[in-house]
Design a protein around this nucleic acid. Structure first.
Lengths: 340, 340
DNA sequence: ACAAAAAATACAATCGATTGTATTACTAAT
DNA sequence: ATTAGTAATACAATCGATTGTATTTTTTGT
């Protein structure tokens, strides 16, 4: 049995009127009398009419859809961000197409093109770890599609950004370790091309300088900051000739696996080594000792990002300058760093 | 500056041929000569042509889109499920629209209708805690849209299901506690209308019966199993006249907050009270003692669900019977229950 | 009661791609 | 060289809703 959906033409025919009137009635236009409107709406319900949005979108040249690309949906920060995006978009009558780049540039490029094909009204994305340039976004720019990059941002001008003040986060985290009496603080950093990690590192450096602690290149170790990396990083820390007494780790996942390794090796946290992470993932409150970390609310960021692109969709005709919104981080002090 | 996207008509005009030939060339039809194909593709690239999928979809009556509704994107199980769905769908050339019901029936109904309006090719969903009947799915059924319910399933016939053998999960969890020597085992259960919790409870009951431990109604406590609930449930357990020595909790979130409360009250886990959770959320491996739990892989479930609906989309013309796939749970034994 | 103004509705083009049918161009066979 | 047969392309309708313009109907005022 084929399903033949009801169209406005079916409604029009069965009432002996024109389909344009039906369309206008269903869109509550004041060019249709109340009497006819009522008749039409009744008939529509009776026939189980369901508007074909494809046709409508084609004609109206809008899709009321926002495309979202994140590296990995299942990471807590990104799933909260998506949650915030979806909620805000839904309230405004927009739907959300979600894609994950899985940290691969190739996939990111292909996803961007899929979203372009689908004529999304705006794109919100967090770039993959492999992304080094932004040529693949040119098409969107040319088509004048509002675009926003959040969390992992680029300093190429021309894009909207919603990001955390990573410098400040790194600065506060390191400052806190110093205040707790740490003298030799290692820093676990992420891929060098990502600005978020560059800036957290800068914050770390400046905090050291301000306290006359010499910055040592060899105390900064880069990795992809996955769970597996945390253990390795911790091993390296224990092998250092000088005794490390503090670690500022640029994310929670690696910080936690490092802690687990250190605990196994009978290193006392925070007495021997104090640790601060980054992101305030739910696990960080549960591990013992609870991990001090930098709060970074995904849902808040998602909400703000969506509000910004919605504004830009509305003002599309007006030439708007790209905006950058920087959220202030806040340090959450827990037991993993409380020496005093 | 208005953006006027290139259409097949622009390509056709600039080459002095018909747009139908352009369309066929771009779809690699063998009704177009190789020579013309090459010419067309070159011109398309030159002009930066981007197919308008809306028009194509309207004509072809398919969207290559799967709609997904989950209660809450940011919950680990669901975000992994979405991750699995997106990956599998992407490979097959489908995109995914994600929505969250936030556990509200009203929102679920509205989302279903949005997805219908958008003519998604299939719907994959996990019902909200408030959902008691399935009338809001009738439209989809009538339109012959493949539908699949995963995790939180309904026993109403006519729908595809991908679910975990919750009975078995409950049975194994309880069995394990009994083998560890527990005699008075409490069960934290979820909302009574959700089958997943009903079945976990059944498994708990049968395991008790098989071991001649009397089932007591008052040892089963229902809640929404949120973080806040765990603490309350733990308080109740401590107030029981009989000494409880084991808890089977129907999810990890509540189990963990219960553990945290019990630890604060100096209850020894597992010596005084052994605990088993459900879902294997990442936190469960990190808390101390590590929480024993039932493995329930979201991404695996998402993948299987997507494969099933993709099959049904393909065979849409053939009348297919709804299928139910039951995944076997596996018990992960960690320290929270290891008495011997 | 009649013209003018306003309200309600109908007509027809359009969005951009697809696809069945018709036509033209070309190849091969007698 | 002529025609049958095939390959290549053109024509035109279609998907379903929207919207500017034209027409008809109703209302208003004198």
């Amino acid at each position: 049995m084929k399903n033949t959906p009801i169209t406005i033409h079916d409604i029009a025919k069965s009432l002996g009127i024109d389909s344009s009137t039906v369309s206008r009635a269903l869109n509550n236009s004041d060019r249709v009398s109340l009497k006819t409107k009522k008749k039409i709406i009744e008939k529509a319900n009776e026939l189980g009419y369901q508007r074909n949005i494809l046709a409508s979108n084609l004609r109206k040249k809008e899709t009321r859809t926002i495309g979202v690309i994140v590296p990995r949906i299942s990471r807590h920060f990104f799933s909260s961000a998506i949650s915030g995006i979806e909620e805000t978009a839904f309230k405004a009558g927009y739907k959300v197409i979600i894609c994950q780049s899985l940290e691969k540039l190739e996939r990111e490029i292909s996803l961007i093109n899929t979203l372009r094909e689908n004529r999304v009204d705006a794109v919100i994305m967090s770039i993959s770890m492999e992304t080094q340039n932004y040529n693949h976004l040119d098409g969107l720019t040319k088509e004048n599609t509002p675009m926003l990059i959040f969390d992992r941002h680029c300093n190429v001008p021309g894009y909207n950004n919603v990001l955390l003040d990573d410098f400040m986060g790194g600065y506060e985290a390191t400052m806190h370790l110093i205040q707790q009496g740490c003298k030799k603080i290692a820093h676990f950093s992420g891929p060098k091309n990502l600005n978020v990690y560059k800036n957290r590192l800068k914050g770390y450096k400046v905090a050291l300088e301000e306290n006359d602690i010499p910055f040592k290149e060899e105390l900064v170790i880069n990795s992809r900051l996955m769970k597996e990396d945390g253990k390795e990083l911790a091993q390296k820390v224990l092998q250092y000739p000088q005794k490390i007494d503090g670690i500022f780790c640029a994310n929670d996942a690696a910080a936690i696996s490092a802690m687990q390794y250190l605990k196994k090796k009978k290193v006392k946290i925070p007495e021997d080594i104090a640790i601060v992470g980054f992101s305030n993932e739910p696990i960080s409150a549960v591990i013992e000792p609870a991990l001090s970390t930098i709060e970074q609310s995904g849902s808040e960021m998602g909400k703000i990002a969506t509000e910004l692109v919605l504004k830009q969709i509305k003002n599309k005709s007006i030439k708007t300058e790209p905006e950058t919104i920087v959220l202030k981080p806040s340090l959450i002090i827990r037991d993993s760093s409380k020496k005093i």
